[in-house]
Amino acid sequence: MKERYLPILATVGVFVVAYAIGGVAFRNFLSTTVLGNMLTDNAFIIIAAIGTTFVILSGGIDLSVGSMIGFVGVAMARLDTLGWHPLESGLLLIAFGTLFGAFQGFIIDFCEIQPFIITLAGLFLLRGSCFMVTLDSLPIQHPFIGVFSDWHIALGGGGRLSASALVMLFMLAVAVAIAHFTRFGTNVYAIGGDRASAQLMGVPIRRTTVMIYALGGFYSALGGVVYALYTASGYPLQAVGDELDAIAAVVLGGTLLTGGVGLVAGTLFGGLIQGLITTMIDFQGSLNSWWAKIFIGILLFVFIVTQRTIMRSFMLRRAA
């Protein structure tokens, strides 16, 4: 067994156990409807979290994710009132998000400033900009919204694989290919593992850093587009704090916050575990929905401690 698969096995294990508990405790929990809804409801956050995975793998952090989702939503809604097709405005905003991320990456590397601060500035900038676009919730009324939300693949048993979920799964596959089968992907792991060594080994640090945050911006903007299409609206306070959900998904997915270790595919399960917990709270019925946060918090804590232990025994074996 390769060490690198241990964390993701833990993640998948938790997912399966939680799923089984839900199946035993609640009627109709194991239906494809629940699965389909879970994939659809969490598609945007998982898409955003995929981008965050690259950032965290490189040893960085991106706090601008939630604001980006919010900004893309209100901008799409505003452009909708000007008669833009959602796909056109979506593409424009994805391009904007990518450039915005690239700029953050450039500043991080060029000025040697902690990603935390730069992306925190990005968070405030974008969130403030949301209110420049609109102060109220704006609907997106283009007929394409209906087309997008109706389109699906039947899963059998009444479940549906929605367009949102498909976009998410496709973009996950793309991300897996980037992470594991391109030089850029390997460089991300190298920089996260040991930045100084990576540089000595000829890894282009600046280009890679710019690309990492550009990818983060791309995925969070895409998450914003999917979210806007899913909710058919833009609201300036949309997705406040979602960057933290994205980070939680990444960490629950087995990626080390210190960088260098983790699998992009793990983030799917990290995101789904959060969705699963929320769904179970919903099924339970009597519990306040904030209990989901409490359980996610406990789970995060347990995960971090477990990872730490795994890494320590790994280091020990190396010393011995």
């Binding site: 690198r4 390997t186 996260g192 593992g193 990576a198 000595l200 080994m201 890894v203 260098g260």
Partner: peptide
């Protein structure tokens, strides 16, 4: 000056992996 978290192969082929 190699990256301990990467596999031996990745360390040996970084920036020149066969595609």
């Amino acid at each position: 000056n190699l990256v301990a978290t990467l596999s031996v192969t990745k360390n040996l082929t970084l920036e020149r992996q066969p595609t």
